[in-house]
Amino acid sequence: MIETLNELDTRLFVWLNNKSAPWLDPVMIMVTERNTWLPFYALLIGWLVYRFRRQALGLLLVIAGSVGIADQVASSVLKPLTHRLRPCHTPTLDRLIHPVMECGGLYSFVSSHAATTFALATSLWLLLGRRYPAFGLTFLWAAVVSYSRIYVAAHYPLDVLAGTGVGILSALLIVGLYHRTTVGKKMVLLGR
């Protein structure tokens, strides 16, 4: 069963990875680079501080907590536990893939990019989505960043899918705990 799933995942990866174009390579490299998004994060932090003043610290801690947990589960627990090689480190795929940048770490399951971006998107949605529906667009951003990992040959589709699940679950956990606190209950009332 696992072998069949791995084979299907590899085939889907090769098909998706080969849907490339020379003009898209630099775009996907930019999308996949973490530093590209630093201005977005700075604007988000600035907006939260401006809009929520005192409550901003709680919101930022909740968001950072969900992103941090997602990253640690992906990088420090699942990758060392599974030892699944990245596609760009798999010799049998060398001639079949389109790598557009350096490969990075050795292991791929699960995608930390998918875990952290979906943790951020889910946290924002759960905390503020009712009042600010535009935060729903962060899921599109997270999906594009996650897809970029397949495009640059760093992850298989199941790595991305599992990373997405890790991110969503970590946000559900941390935001759920936050909503159970006094501060969180007040924030829920403010958010309506």
Rank of each mutant, 00 (worst) to 15 (best):
A64K: 02
G65H: 08
G65N: 06
G65L: 05
S66R: 10
S66H: 00
S66M: 07
S66G: 05
S66D: 01
V67Y: 00
G68L: 03
I69C: 04
I69H: 04
A70T: 05
A70E: 02
A70Y: 00
D71G: 05
D71H: 03
Q72W: 01
Q72K: 04
V73F: 00
V73K: 00
V73N: 00
A74F: 01
A74D: 03
S75F: 00
S75V: 03
S75T: 13
S76A: 15
S76K: 14
V77N: 02
V77M: 11
V77Q: 06
V77S: 02
L78F: 14
L78Q: 09
K79F: 01
K79R: 04
K79S: 07
K79T: 07
P80M: 11
P80D: 08
L81T: 10
L81C: 02
L81M: 15
L81Y: 12
T82R: 02
H83V: 10
H83M: 09
H83R: 06
R84W: 01
R84E: 00
R84I: 03
L85W: 12
R86E: 07
P87L: 10
P87Q: 09
P87H: 06
P87G: 12
P87E: 08
T90I: 01
T90L: 04
T92S: 15
T92M: 11
L93V: 08
D94N: 14
D94H: 10
R95N: 14
R95P: 06
R95F: 10
L96C: 03
L96F: 08
L96T: 03
L96A: 13
I97D: 09
H98R: 15
H98I: 07
H98C: 11
P99V: 06
V100L: 13
V100I: 15
M101N: 11
M101Y: 07
M101K: 15
M101S: 10
E102Q: 13
E102P: 13
E102D: 10
C103L: 09
C103A: 07
G104P: 14
G105Y: 10
G105N: 06
L106Q: 14
Y107P: 12
Y107A: 07
Y107D: 09
Y107R: 04
S108D: 05
S108I: 05
S108A: 14
F109A: 05
F109M: 15
F109N: 02
F109V: 04
F109L: 15
V110G: 01
V110A: 15
V110F: 12
S111F: 06
S111R: 08
S111M: 06
H113Q: 11
H113N: 14
H113C: 09
A114V: 09
A114G: 06
A114D: 07
A114C: 06
A115L: 11
A115F: 03
T116L: 07
T116M: 13
T116S: 15
T116N: 15
T117D: 03
T117W: 15
T117M: 15
F118N: 04
A119P: 00
A119R: 11
A119S: 09
A119V: 05
A119I: 12
A119H: 00
L120A: 09
L120E: 00
L120N: 02
A121N: 00
A121F: 04
A121M: 04
T122K: 08
T122W: 00
T122M: 14
T122S: 14
